[in-house]
Amino acid sequence: MREKPVRTFWPWLLIAVVVVYAGLLLLAPLVAVISGAFEDGIQPVLEAITAAEALLSLRLTFFLAITASVINAILGLIVAWVLVRHRFPGKWFFNALVDLPFVVSPVIVGYVMIVLFGRTGWLQNFPIQLAFSLPGMLVVTVFVSLPFVIREVMPVLASLTREQEEAAFTLGASSWMTFYRIVFPAIRHGIIYGIVLTLARALGEFGAVAVIGGGVQGVTETATIYIYRSLHDRNDIGAYSMAITLGVISVGILVVMNWLRRDPSEKGSQHVDPTE
C-alpha cells in the first residue's frame, strides 16, 4: 500500500493541522445548528416542522428536485452519449457549455428567466407562464443541476472498450438491446451517483428559485425560501428546524454518496442479473 505508517513528528503535525481545519470548518457549524435548534428541547422543533406552510414548502422542494433529477438523468445520459461517442464540429464548445451551470451565479439564472418571461420580458406572450410559477422554478432547478449526471457518466462511457458491444451487435442484438445489456450495466453506477448529486444540488437551490418564483407563501415557496423568510420574520425556531431538516436530508445523501463511491462490485460490466 501507499500509506506509510506514521512514526515521526512532522506527519502527525500535518495530520493534526488538517483534522483541526476540517473540524472547525465543517463540523463546528453542524454542531452549532443542532444545539441552536434544540435549545428548548425537541417539542418546538417538531411543531415548527409540522406547521402547514413548512410541510408545503418541503413538498414543493421535493417535487422540484425529483422532477429535475428525472429530466437530467434522461437528457444527461443522452448528452453524455453524444459527447463521448459522436464526432462533430464544435463538440468542444458543447463540452465546455456543460460546466457553466457549476459557475454561473444562481441569481443570474433566475434573473435571465425574468428578462425572458417576466411581465415586460422579451417573450412575455409565451403560452406557458414561467415567471413566478412552478414551471419556471423547474427550469432553473434543471439548469443548476444539469452537469452532474453528464460529468459522472462521461468518463465511464469513455473508458469502455467497444469489443463487447461489437460482439453483441454482430450476434444480432439490436442497438437498443446492445445498449441495455452491455453499456447500461457498466455505466449504471455513474448514473446513480450523478442522480444523487443532482438531487442534492436541486434540493438546496435558493437563489435561482427565489428570483424566478418570487417566494409566494404556500405557492412558490420552497424549503430554502421558507428558511429565508422565517429568518426575516424573526421566526428563528422555524428557520433552524427547517435548516436541520434539510441538513439531515443532505447528510443522508452524503452517506449514500460515500456508500456508492466505495462499492467496487458495481464497477465492471460482468454483473449478471439472474432474473434475465
Partner: peptide
C-alpha cells in the same frame, strides 16, 4: 467522508449554521 459535506448541504443552510 465529511469532505463532501459542502457539496451536499444547501448553501443557505451553511449560512444559517
Amino acid at each position: 467522508s465529511v469532505i463532501d459535506l459542502p457539496f451536499a448541504i444547501p448553501t443557505l443552510v451553511t449560512g444559517v449554521m
